[in-house]
C-alpha cells in the first residue's frame, strides 16, 4: 500500500492557454509536491502578467518523447508529398479564391 517515499518534489511540465480559443502551449517546468501545488506554483511563476486563462500541469515523467535520432525516418517521408498542399494544384484564375 505504501508508495516509496519521494526525496525531492517531482518535476512537472506546465502548459498555458493564453486566451480562450487558443491551444495550451508548453511554457516551462517546475518542482511541486502534488498536482494542486503544481497548479498553484504555475500560476505564480508563469502567469504573473495575465499570460494565461487556463493551466495544465503534467508530471514530466509521464511524457513520452520521440527520439531525435529517428527524426529522418519519422519526418522526412512527408517532404516529398507536396500533393498534400493546396499550392500543388493549379486552378484557372477566373475560378477565383478556392
Amino acid at each position: 500500500m505504501n508508495k516509496p517515499a519521494l526525496k525531492d518534489w517531482p518535476l512537472w511540465e506546465v502548459f498555458i492557454r493564453s486566451k480562450q480559443g487558443l491551444d495550451h502551449k508548453h511554457c516551462g517546468s517546475l518542482h511541486a509536491a502534488d498536482p494542486a501545488q503544481a497548479l498553484h506554483m504555475a500560476r505564480d511563476v508563469y502567469t504573473r502578467r495575465q499570460e494565461g486563462v487556463s493551466i495544465w500541469v503534467v508530471p514530466s515523467a509521464a511524457i513520452t518523447a520521440s527520439n531525435p535520432d529517428d527524426k529522418g525516418e519519422l519526418f522526412d517521408p512527408a517532404a516529398d508529398k507536396i500533393y498534400r498542399h493546396p499550392t500543388f494544384y493549379e486552378i484557372p484564375e477566373e475560378v477565383g479564391h478556392m
Binding site: 500500500m1 505504501n2 508508495k3 517515499a5 519521494l6 518534489w9 511541486a32 509536491a33 502534488d34 501545488q37
Partner: peptide
Amino acid sequence: ALAHARKQQERAIK
C-alpha cells in the same frame, strides 16, 4: 508538502 502529497496518494489508493 511531501508528507501531504503522500497522504493524499495513500488515501486515493485506499
